[in-house]
Amino acid sequence: MNNIVIGQYIPGSSFLYKMDPRSKILALILLMVTTFVLTDIIQILVLLSVLLVILKLGGIPIGRIVKGLRPIIVLLFFTFTFQVLFIKTGRIILDETLHYSFYTILLAVGVVLFWMITKRFIKFKISYFLMMIVGILSIFMYYPIGDPFAQGQLVIYTGGLQGAFFIMVRLIIIVTLSTILTLTTKPTDLTLGLEQLLKPLSIIKVSAEEIALIISIALRYIPTLLDEANKIMLAQASRGVDFKEGKLKDKVVQIISLLVPMFIISFKRSDELANAMEARNFVPGNRRTRLHILTWQTIDTITIIITAITIPVAILLRVMLG
């Protein structure tokens, strides 16, 4: 429960930190569009290397970016597999027959069981998972023991590999871009920037200020509520609830015993917060001065111009090559 970090901001002083949050958000959107316009693998690799240079100059440790990629590893794995299996263009680079017999399936099940038992002792979980997959495939491909009752074909084309690689790089770029934003911008600055950017929406009666307020209050209260949840779990554990065990029916009661106090405490807290805000004469939509004023600098203008130019360049490249 304690290892959840909300707001990944790490303090620093590079140019990425000095930039206005507004220009950072805009640049993020513009670069994302560029990423989607590009279709050539070389071009997208160029974009990735430019991104790596920015990371280096901005003094952001690569380790933090890799950490940011961790949640999407499953997604990356699935897109990769689907691309490899279903794109059938280019040369064939692998064409193997898979033998499904009683013995090979038994062996495969054995490998899976071995993986499930040993995985908790292995540090590199993802590589270990991939090794397990490769192991199973090679059993089906190279050890045709017993009578196969079915046979399958595993065909991999160069196009499939290329496509899979391309999509992976694209996803990695997008996640890296947003990680850069959240790493170098304080949550408060982020919501402030968002508020300013959404201001034009007031024409269609959407209050940017209220949206920003809701976001910042939500961000502020996530750690508090996690803390409360932890306390409730301890209080219920004192009354004999074992949150780790129990049948499905017990589980339902356990979750209710956590959720009901959670709801009541959150409502109470929001009520108190509303009172505290009113006591300080907060009126939604009123004109307010700010403690921190966003300043647009030359670097922000330059960033926006450069990132904006990448879009027509990408379209041009696509038209010329395509």
């Binding site: 409360e228 306390k231 301890l234 209080a235 219920q236 004192s238 009354r239 004999g240 015993s257 106090p261």
Partner: peptide
């Protein structure tokens, strides 16, 4: 869990543990 029956701990804020519909059911929990 059996230890928690032997050593009963009452937390500071009752809000952290009350959740049932009636007091009876909450005490029975």
């Amino acid at each position: 869990t059996p230890l928690r029956q032997k050593v009963g701990l009452v937390f500071q804020f009752p809000e952290y543990q009350l959740f049932e519909e009636t007091v009876m059911r909450d005490i029975m929990f």
